[in-house]
Design a protein around this nucleic acid. Sequence first.
DNA 1: TATGGTTGTCTATATCAATAGACATTTCGA
DNA 2: TCGAAATGTCTATTGATATAGACAACCATA
Lengths: 245, 245
Amino acid sequence: MAGLKQVQRQTGVALWRQIADRIREAIGNGTYDETGMVPPETVLALQFGVNRHTVRSALAALAQEGIVRAVQGRGTLIERKERLNFPITRRTRFTAGIGDQARETRGLLLDEAQEEASAEVARWLGLKQGEQVIRLETLRHADRRPVSKATSWFPAERFAGIGEAYRKHESITKAFAELGLADYVRATTEVTAAHAATADLADLELTPGAILLIAKAMNTDLDGMPVQYSISRFAADRVQFTIEN
Amino acid sequence: MAGLKQVQRQTGVALWRQIADRIREAIGNGTYDETGMVPPETVLALQFGVNRHTVRSALAALAQEGIVRAVQGRGTLIERKERLNFPITRRTRFTAGIGDQARETRGLLLDEAQEEASAEVARWLGLKQGEQVIRLETLRHADRRPVSKATSWFPAERFAGIGEAYRKHESITKAFAELGLADYVRATTEVTAAHAATADLADLELTPGAILLIAKAMNTDLDGMPVQYSISRFAADRVQFTIEN
DNA sequence: TATGGTTGTCTATATCAATAGACATTTCGA
DNA sequence: TCGAAATGTCTATTGATATAGACAACCATA
């Protein structure tokens, strides 16, 4: 089954990047778990049907990402191997969902603003276009690795001060609690995938061409009243979603 | 908000491909819906900060995909603009889920085999490793455009003949019905994203570097007995998932 | 300590990707 | 019917990507 790993030429994606992507994926798969090492450069070159130098470019990129570490004379060691599982259920919460898989989770508030609701935001929050909303730009880490960057909107009237509360607690759930919303539920989630935008690359410590899993989500209170609409961008090679029905 | 659309150099992904990806995305967004055309090449070159020839390479790639059509003297017209919505619920079915958004859906059986369950397949289907399973390789179209390619496994004993039934009905639901399973439910779905493997490129009519949304799903009968485990690869620029809780 | 297997470095060459500029061709409206 | 605006084509040049071969440096172990 694990036959030739093919790559294609003249596609606008350099061979070394295609190979880097496949090796990263294989590491995530656990393909090399037995040895804890990537196969020798000459073997990889043969498998992919390219020159050894091309493989070296790919491994250099992975080393740059901190995924592997080459040791002269020994081989190329795997440094990290992770794919966090993010459950999407009616009770989806970031911190609680990731929490048991990471020793430490953090939530960083990058930006906060009050603005008029766009058509899209208004539709999701059940507001009129132009009504006031609070927008938070947040970056979430697990064990010091960035996992997702999210843009969230909240009805401004009901959730005044949520930025400050988030900054304090580093959690939406706790920020809601401080503002008097003890519980909420996930109503809808839309999932797509796309290449990372430049603005997200640095924050998520990604290289261009990297893939994002994008979740557009709407949370309501227990009466079904929308309380949050968010667009979260997850580094696709670090996360998978699980939907239990 | 719609400021400079940036692209990055020396990343292993050619500028023309990055630009093609962003334009394809913008078309899907409805960014150019007013005119039904992509902005002039000179304007795009300015927006992306590249030479006009580089933009032309990007547009040529999109024309090759059938997404745009350039007309000398007029401009570059948008041919297709679509992102099918695929709901993931307890009652997820491909044909019914996509059916109302497309005039015609098809399901093609690419390959069929009986084999021993791998560790992963056995775990999902609640079998012992090495027990017999039937594997189907299917390709699903909507309006003659390939949407997803899926590998499915079924317990061999209970679902003997499912390949033939699928070939006849072009639907898993109907194939199940013919074999006496009137109803089933989606138990679990895992969603990830990755670059398309070479083996899937041609079938899904994608170019290398394209993104797949990958759904690993397990269906059970009404007694909770696993009846199907599948790994579906969706062309990410043609599909989004919706999860309603 | 000698040897095989591995990564590191260097030179050279060919092809692809991107820029630059000039001009042709087509469409559409003033 | 003229001209502005748009795409199409051509030549030339530079830098990134990929191949090829050779050899050095290092590690583990027989």
